[in-house]
Structure formats: structure tokens, C-alpha cells
């Protein structure tokens, strides 16, 4: 192979790599433009029934129930408009808490129940020391009263 052909081949493969990765990224996001679906979208029937998808929202306060003697846990995911009951068996991430964000991957059964195979915690972009968080919570309570 002449140096010229070797060069053309290398350039061609780099360009091909760029085009393919850009194409793959775009296709992936077109197919699954939403990384996760909200409970409202699930309720509206906008989710695939035959394949697994991700459900994202907040864990409803007071909805987490752990089954005694097993790793099975059930909770409700809400976007404060609709609610979807979820069951999951396995280890939960440290940040899994009531009132915090969650992304669960799994399938929806016909009764509207979501069976999760994987549960990830989604946190927001706010960072604060524990004392500040307590003060914020107290402030919210005072406003609510």
C-alpha cells in the first residue's frame, strides 16, 4: 500500500467514525428522546408496552414499604399529577429516599403496575450543609401552616 493510500484510508476511517458516532447518537435520541418517561406520560399511554423503559419521578412521601425478610420494596413514583406503583427486588442506592428523585427501569404490566429491574437515584443540582437543609425544611413547614 502506498503512503498516499494508507493516508486516505486512515482519514476515511476517522471521518467514518465521526459520522457513525454522530449518527448513532442522533438515532438513539430519536428512538428514545426521553431518557425516562414521567408518570403522566405513562398514564396517557405514551410508553411502549412490549419493551422495557425508564420511569422517572419523585418517590411519594410515606409510600415506601419494605417486605419483611426480603429485599423486595414497593413505592409510588409521582410527578404530583399522576402516580405509578412500583415494586423492586434488590439493593437500593444510598440516595433512595422518600421525596427524592428516582429513575426505575422495567416493564409496565396491564394492571398499570411497574415492575422495576433496576432503580437509580436522581438528585437535583442543589447542595447544602445539613443545618441549612433543616432550616429550609422548617421554613417550608412554617409557610405551609
Amino acid at each position: 500500500m502506498t503512503p498516499r493510500r494508507r493516508r486516505m484510508l486512515l482519514i476515511g476511517s476517522v471521518l467514518l467514525g465521526v459520522v457513525v458516532s454522530a449518527g448513532l447518537a442522533l438515532r438513539a435520541f430519536e428512538q428514545n428522546l426521553l431518557y425516562f418517561f414521567s408518570p403522566s406520560e405513562v398514564a396517557a399511554g405514551e410508553v411502549p408496552s412490549e419493551r422495557a423503559f425508564r420511569l422517572g419521578g419523585m418517590v411519594l412521601d410515606g409510600s415506601v414499604e419494605r417486605e419483611a425478610g426480603s429485599l423486595t420494596v414497593s413505592f409510588v413514583v409521582t410527578d404530583y399529577a399522576h402516580q405509578i406503583p412500583v415494586t423492586y427486588t434488590g439493593v437500593l442506592p444510598d440516595l433512595f429516599q422518600e421525596g427524592q428523585g428516582v429513575v426505575a427501569r422495567g416493564r409496565l404490566d396491564p394492571s398499570g403496575h411497574f415492575a422495576a429491574e433496576e432503580v437509580l437515584a436522581k438528585h437535583d443540582e442543589n447542595y447544602m450543609p445539613p443545618e441549612v437543609a433543616e432550616a429550609v425544611a422548617r421554613g417550608r413547614e412554617a409557610q405551609g401552616q
Partner: peptide, 25 residues
């Protein structure tokens, strides 16, 4: 925090990976 090292399909993670490929390319 999230419970995973890497999540395919997360847009932020994917485009950051493409940035690395652009430098290497």
C-alpha cells in the same frame, strides 16, 4: 449517589464521551 457508574442513553454522559472521541480523533 445514582447507584451506577455509567448509564448508556443519558445525554450528558453520551456527549461527554463523544468529546473524548473528538479529541482522540
Amino acid at each position: 449517589t445514582w447507584g451506577t457508574y455509567w448509564e448508556w442513553g443519558d445525554a450528558r454522559l453520551m456527549f461527554e464521551l463523544i468529546l473524548l472521541f473528538l479529541f482522540l480523533g
